[in-house]
Design a protein around this nucleic acid. Sequence first.
DNA 1: ACATTAAGTGATT
DNA 2: AATCACTTAATGT
Length: 216
Amino acid sequence: MEHFNQNIFELVHQNFPQLSELALQKEIAQVGTLKHFRAGEVIMNYGSYVKLVPLLVKGAIKVVREDDEDGRELLLYYLYAGETCSMSFSCCMMNKRSDIRTTAEDDSAIIAIPIRYVDAWISKYPSWKNFVMQAYDSRMREMIQTIDSIAFKKMDERLLKYLHERSEAHASKTIHSTHQEIANDLNASREAVSRLLKKLERDGTIALERNKIQLL
DNA sequence: ACATTAAGTGATT
DNA sequence: AATCACTTAATGT
């Protein structure tokens, strides 16, 4: 048995109680490494090979896809503590390059699991298999939601949902971002975002300042 | 004080 | 709802 990391062991307990086998928890504490990222740091870029699966234990991670045509970005989803990136599963098991880019939205920490274990544990530990399947399932559901929110919902609903997501991501009612950045995330024009934000401000749901939005 | 960047607005499609 | 053209406001040098 290799170097056992008590710290990681405890982090698994706190953030991933569904990984119930003690042997699995111990293995994670042996082969996993704790990695920290500062807010804004790029964790994984397009085209890079995924050789780790992250278990997010602190902070929030933003997952983004770039449009092939005009190089614009589309926000896919956020990851929070207790979650993992299901894209990384498929990517690393197929040994494919990443289609997405992930950045730390906040100061974040992950337990990085080398891929060779990810595969092996699926047959070894039922709770790990469950974990992987559930990660896929919930991501799939969320993606479907996102798709029909783009297809059927109005911009103002999307914007509001976005603001709440961001606020939750930082555990703060204040969002530091320009209208332009928000527009990029939502694939909308800056003007549209500005106008909708203004409307929300008039309704009293938010307060606007330069580079800053407060949820009320 | 001036330049730069963010935000607000109306008109057009 | 996007784009354009322009104004106004805030911030940095």
